[in-house]
Design a protein around this nucleic acid. Sequence first.
DNA 1: TTTACATATTAGAATATCCTAATATTATAA
DNA 2: TTATAATATTAGGATATTCTAATATGTAAA
Lengths: 93, 93
Amino acid sequence: MSKIDYIKNSEIFKALSNPIRLQMVDFLLDDECCVTDVVNELGISQSASSQHLLILKNSGIVYPEKHGTRTCYKVKNKLAEEIIKLLKTNNND
Amino acid sequence: MSKIDYIKNSEIFKALSNPIRLQMVDFLLDDECCVTDVVNELGISQSASSQHLLILKNSGIVYPEKHGTRTCYKVKNKLAEEIIKLLKTNNND
DNA sequence: TTTACATATTAGAATATCCTAATATTATAA
DNA sequence: TTATAATATTAGGATATTCTAATATGTAAA
């Protein structure tokens, strides 16, 4: 029953407030992937993909792991994971 | 295990992506209230309050009930309620 | 009815978001 | 090395957000 940090939490929602980023998080939860995979899966430009991933990284939802020339992004945020789970179970009217 | 509607759900997050609106939803969950109460609780202008409440209404998170000159806003959205619950229980690092 | 109260709406400025196009960086392969 | 692949960064335009200030609307009390 702790107090909510509205500013901090609203930043998580801001990160998830874009449909592309929401899809990215869902996709990276199943298959942690490199940027090119995300580009192919979502059908967006490489630049846009990098910029969205940066936003997700800055909001603490994903983190990058370098492997050679590739960067593999993984979701690591309990709240974000719980929220995605909610979206999947909620037969949201 | 249904597919997620990214566009639709991202709109909920957009509504919650502003700290004032996030606080509004939390406040209205406890004490469903008229606009003036919200104004006093959050310390924002009447106009800003009305505009934020309209956004919450349009996103399907709250709905208004008229009582005389007052408008009483209530939260009615299962997903939003679950999310706020998550924020309260998650000892979010 | 006038007046006051509660809320809604509008206009416009400041700022933020998000895209594309172009270029930079970095690591491996040839 | 040089070339290529993968990713990051930058600039700038189009659009969206959010505030304040001003005005409009609706209801009830005097």
